[in-house]
């Protein structure tokens, strides 16, 4: 295959477009992963009164266990809570305050986590329900689950997911459009070649094969280039950028696209590019009316 300027620009446009599609999909995928983590973090803490007996505590837990939306119930003793607290304060707390002293300040609690399959909206409603149900229980001192935070988060969550999906769809559509257009102009460029081939006895199959082959090469090459660039971007963010910016959590949890995802995105694009090429080839051949003697 001989490289013309049009073929080079098709390669560049295709690679660039595929990079955008792959990256926007990777963005969308990672938003979903990360939002999943944050939702899992949503917990409801039931702080118990200091004089609560083991039976009273057991009855409260038994009541919670009947709810199938609840994934996990964990009792945090005063000592554990104090140790956690001290850990958060880190070395600042050394010599400042002892675990015993903190223990006196922190009550025992029951921590409830909901099934992760629930939407943040439902989780919010569920927490509100549990709170109403348990407030009357005499052993409960206080219930907290960061209502406002979750509410805002559920809006943010939907907005981000929607934005990711929108970005991905808009990019995909424009990329398909541009690629089909480029395929068309490449066929236009070979119009004289098609005419000559047909005049010296080439069958339609031969002409299709000859004109589609460059598309296969160019497409394969740009698929490879764009996957490499996308991986490079992922690698940079995971191992350099997020670490340098102090986003260890992001660095640890973002994921690259897996093979089926890359393959299906590339296949969809491939389908459209080849369809564009075949259709314009077909119309070029018909326009030249080289095969029908009429």
């Amino acid at each position: 295959m001989r490289w013309s300027s049009l073929k080079v620009s098709l390669l560049v446009v295709l690679s660039f477009s595929m990079v955008m599609v792959l990256i926007s999909f990777m963005f969308y995928k990672n938003i979903n992963i990360l939002l999943g983590f944050w939702e899992d973090e949503a917990k409801l803490s039931i702080y118990l009164k200091v004089d609560t007996t083991e039976e009273e505590k057991g009855a409260a837990i038994a009541r919670l266990k009947t709810d199938s939306d609840i994934a996990n119930i964990q009792v945090v003793t005063r000592n554990e809570a104090a140790a956690d607290f001290k850990k958060i304060l880190g070395e600042y707390s050394n010599g400042l305050i002892s675990v015993d002293e903190i223990t006196d300040l922190i009550p025992e609690s029951i921590v409830v986590t909901l099934q992760s399959s629930l939407s943040s909206q439902t989780k919010n409603e569920k927490f509100a329900y549990i709170k109403r149900d348990l407030t009357l229980n005499p052993v409960v001192e206080e219930i907290s689950y960061g209502t406002e935070w979750i509410k805002q988060f559920s809006k943010f969550d939907r907005a981000l997911k929607f934005f990711g999906l929108l970005l991905f769809s808009v990019l995909s559509i424009s990329v398909l459009f541009i690629s089909a257009l480029m395929a068309r102009s490449l066929v236009e460029e070979s119009k004289t070649e098609i005419e000559v081939l047909s005049l010296i006895g080439a069958t339609r199959w031969f002409i299709y094969k000859n004109n589609l082959l460059p598309f296969f090469y160019i497409f394969g090459l740009s698929a490879a280039i764009s996957t490499a660039i996308t991986f490079g971007t992922y690698f940079y963010f995971k191992h350099r950028f997020f670490l340098a910016q102090g986003f260890g959590f992001l660095a640890e949890n973002i994921r690259f696209l897996d093979a089926p995802e890359v393959l299906s995105l590339v296949c969809i694009l491939f389908f459209f590019v080849i369809c564009g090429a075949v259709l314009s080839l077909k119309s070029a051949i018909q326009r030249l009316s080289l095969f029908a003697y009429e």
């Binding site: 013309s4 070649e193 010296i200 006895g201 069958t203 003697y293």
Partner: peptide
Amino acid sequence: NSLKLGQTPFYRRKIGFVFQDYKLLKN
């Protein structure tokens, strides 16, 4: 006049054409 669509290439193979404008493939 009654040449079929699929026959045209095979008809043209029986003939050698030297066109006035050559019609060579540039690439």
